[in-house]
Amino acid sequence: RLRTTITPEQLEILYQKYLLDSNPTRKMLDHIAHEVGLKKRVVQVWFQNTRARERK
């Protein structure tokens, strides 16, 4: 499986959303995924990875 490439514009939106809520609901994940044009699962994993990186 190929990795999904996230553009700088998408990253900017994801980080803005992360600052508002680091643990979004399913509904919010759907909305964010639609807004940035990525699959919900990709957005979900991005949030998981970002939370894990923050803990280190």
Rank of each mutant, 00 (worst) to 15 (best):
N49I: 06
I13Y: 11
R51D: 04
R51I: 06
K39A: 14
Q10L: 03
D30N: 06
Y18E: 00
L11S: 11
A52M: 08
Q44H: 10
V43K: 00
I32A: 01
D30S: 09
L11R: 12
T4P: 13
N23V: 05
L2M: 07
L19S: 08
F47T: 00
P8I: 15
K40Y: 13
L20R: 06
N49V: 07
D21P: 03
D30H: 11
H34R: 10
F47L: 03
T25E: 09
R26C: 14
L11C: 03
L2V: 13
F47R: 02
R53W: 04
T4S: 08
R1W: 09
K27Y: 07
Q10Y: 01
K39D: 13
E12M: 15
D30M: 06
K17Q: 13
E12S: 09
T50Y: 10
A52Y: 07
S22R: 04
N49F: 03
V43S: 01
R1Y: 12
R55I: 13
N49Q: 08
H34I: 03
K40L: 14
F47I: 00
L38S: 03
K39F: 00
T25W: 00
Q10E: 04
L29V: 10
K27E: 14
V45S: 05
H31G: 14
N23M: 09
L20H: 06
R51Y: 12
A52I: 03
I13L: 09
D21H: 03
W46Q: 01
Y18V: 03
H31K: 08
T5I: 08
Y18D: 00
I32S: 02
K56I: 01
W46E: 00
R53C: 12
W46V: 01
K17E: 11
T25P: 08
H34C: 10
H31E: 14
N23P: 00
W46N: 00
R55W: 11
G37V: 01
R1S: 13
K40W: 14
A33C: 09
Y15C: 05
E9S: 06
K40G: 12
I6P: 08
A33V: 04
R41P: 08
N49G: 07
T7P: 13
L2I: 14
Q44L: 05
P24F: 03
Q10I: 06
T7G: 10
L20W: 07
K56Q: 12
S22N: 06
E9L: 06
N49A: 08
F47Y: 05
V45P: 02
E12N: 10
P24E: 02
K40E: 15
A33L: 01
E35W: 04
L29G: 02
Q10R: 02
T5N: 07
Q16D: 07
L2H: 11
S22I: 03
V42K: 13
K39G: 13
D21W: 02
K40H: 10
N49S: 10
P8D: 09
D21L: 03
D30Y: 06
L20V: 11
T7H: 05
I32T: 06
V43E: 00
K40S: 14
P24I: 02
E9H: 07
Q48I: 02
L2Q: 13
E54W: 04
D21Q: 07
R55T: 15
R55Q: 14
Y15M: 10
V42W: 10
P8R: 14
T50S: 08
T5K: 03
N23C: 03
R26V: 15
V42G: 04
I32V: 10
T7C: 07
Q16E: 05
D21Y: 02
Y15N: 09
G37N: 06
D21G: 06
P8W: 13
Q48M: 05
S22V: 05
K40C: 08
N23Q: 12
L29I: 13
K27F: 06
A52G: 10
I6H: 06
T50M: 12
R3H: 14
I32K: 01
V42S: 06
I6Q: 02
Q16S: 07
E9Q: 10
V43L: 04
Q48K: 12
P8M: 15
V43M: 01
L2G: 13
V36P: 00
P8H: 10
L19A: 10
S22L: 03
L2W: 09
R53F: 14
T7F: 01
L11T: 09
Q44A: 11
I13F: 13
R26Q: 15
T4F: 05
V43W: 00
V36A: 09
H31L: 12
T5E: 15
Q48N: 07
S22F: 05
I13Q: 09
Y15P: 00
L11E: 11
Y18T: 00
I32M: 04
L2R: 06
V36K: 00
H31F: 10
Q10F: 00
E12L: 08
P24D: 03
L11Q: 09
R26K: 13
R51E: 08
T50D: 02
Y18I: 03
T25A: 07
T50I: 07
P24Y: 03
K56M: 08
F47V: 00
P24W: 08
V36S: 09
V43C: 05
M28I: 03
Q10C: 04
L14W: 02
Q48Y: 09
Q10K: 04
I32H: 03
Q48W: 07
K56N: 10
I6D: 04
L14A: 00
L20T: 10
V43G: 00
E54Y: 04
D21K: 00
R55H: 11
L2F: 12
L38G: 00
T25V: 05
H34Y: 11
R3T: 15
G37Q: 08
L29C: 10
T5A: 13
R53T: 12
I32D: 00
R3L: 13
E54F: 08
L20I: 10
Q16K: 09
Q48A: 13
T4Q: 11
R41K: 14
L2C: 04
L19C: 10
L14S: 02
Y15K: 12
E12V: 05
R55G: 14
Q44Y: 09
R3V: 14
P8V: 15
K27L: 09
